Amino acid sequence: MLDDDQIPPIDRSALRHSYVIANGKGGVGKTTLASNLAGLVAADGARVLLVDVNGQGNVGRDLGYRESGVDDEGAALYESLRTGAPLIPVQGVRPNLDVVVGGAQVGAAPDMLAATFRMQQHRQALSLAICLAPIAHHYDLVVLDSAPENPPLQQLALSAARWMVAPTRSDKASINDGLGSISRQFQLVQRSVNPDLTLLGVVLFGSGSASKQIHRNARQWVAEELNADGYLFDSIVRYSEAVGQDARSHGRLVHELEAAAAANPKFWDLRSGRANAGTIVSTTSASVAEDLATLAREILTRAAGQDAA
């Protein structure tokens, strides 16, 4: 039950297509999944909003706008959280894709909210939902990238979402520590401020596609951690260090790398000096792009099926 006074009304129906990508620990593919899910759906023609609720601001690395005029390090998001005003996204970061930029100022938001809404814990947790709901109806999909190891920022993102998707590595420590941590935040938020929040599923990220026994073990550990089976998505995003490095060094999403790989310079052009080796993109990007596209379809299909049910 909400017991804080003066919490503005929140149109939860406007947030029915909002997805938070969350895990309690870093390095499990969370931001990569958030950026690429948003970018893939936007490339397919839908209107998408990506909200970077993270003090690291790594969405900007995935989309190539870090240290540009677009990158305000989360100042606009911070101000909306402080005042309760609707979010003001940066428009057209990609065709059909708008972004609410994250960064260092977002990391400072929990302290500001605690001071601004002193003794109003529910109002603090709902601050992002209050700012997001008035603009969410402009979009077919809203994706929120949440912060690892930062419960107050996690609560902000979870409180504004309808669905939670949790990427994880396949080892037992990642599943127990990462999923265990975010599961506790999920239950707290669902019980106290956002009863609409639903765990849609868990994604194995950065795993070998042929590692069947590893996948069986991971499925068992996920079921044990969440006290339920059936959450693990069938789609698995395979491991490729080269693709991860290329994506952030070039500021491109994986499906954009796939297109760029087709234009890689020929060996003889490199040898003759007519082309720069720094322009080469890993051809493994095609496989990872396929994994992400398959996962995106599975995520949206599962959500639609649960809504229909």
Rank of each mutant, 00 (worst) to 15 (best):
V41S: 02
T32F: 11
A109E: 08
S282A: 13
A261S: 15
S282N: 14
A247D: 09
S13V: 10
S146C: 02
R61W: 10
D3N: 14
V51T: 08
E79C: 00
E290P: 00
R169V: 01
D44R: 15
V70R: 11
I214V: 14
K172S: 04
S249H: 10
A75C: 02
A14S: 15
S282I: 04
L15V: 10
Y239A: 07
S211A: 15
L292C: 05
L132F: 05
L49V: 00
P167H: 06
G244C: 05
S170F: 07
R274H: 14
A263S: 12
S13C: 04
A218V: 09
G102H: 08
A228L: 11
A125H: 13
A173M: 12
H17N: 15
R248C: 01
Q185C: 09
A114I: 06
Y19G: 01
S282M: 09
A309N: 14
G305T: 12
G64Y: 05
L113N: 06
L141A: 01
V101S: 05
V243D: 03
G244W: 02
L292A: 07
V254I: 15
K172D: 11
S240P: 04
H255E: 09
S207D: 11
G45R: 10
V189C: 05
V165S: 07
L200P: 09
T116G: 00
A303V: 13
Q155A: 10
I130Y: 02
R94H: 03
V100A: 03
K212D: 14
L77N: 03
L156F: 12
M1G: 14
D269R: 12
R66E: 13
S35M: 03
A218W: 11
G69M: 12
D140Y: 01
N36M: 02
N36Q: 06
D98R: 08
G305D: 14
E79N: 07
L300R: 14
A247Y: 10
A247T: 12
R47W: 01
G206K: 08
Q56L: 07
L50R: 05
A263N: 12
R123Q: 10
N150C: 07
G178L: 03
A160P: 02
A136Q: 04
V165H: 07
D62R: 03
L128V: 02
S209F: 11
I214A: 13
V142C: 01
L97F: 05
S207W: 06
V281M: 07
L200Y: 14
G206L: 11
P167I: 03
M119Q: 14
E224M: 10
D111E: 12
E256P: 00
V237G: 04
A38D: 06
Q213C: 00
S127F: 04
R94T: 02
Q213A: 07
Q6L: 13
D140M: 01
I130Q: 13
L188N: 12
L156Y: 09
D145K: 01
G24R: 09
V288P: 02
A133E: 15
I280V: 15
V165N: 07
V222Q: 10
A308V: 08
D71G: 05
A147S: 09
A157T: 02
G206N: 11
A109H: 01
V193D: 10
D234P: 00
S209D: 09
V288T: 11
A263M: 05
A38P: 04
Q306W: 11
S174F: 08
I10F: 09
F267D: 05
G69C: 02
Y78S: 08
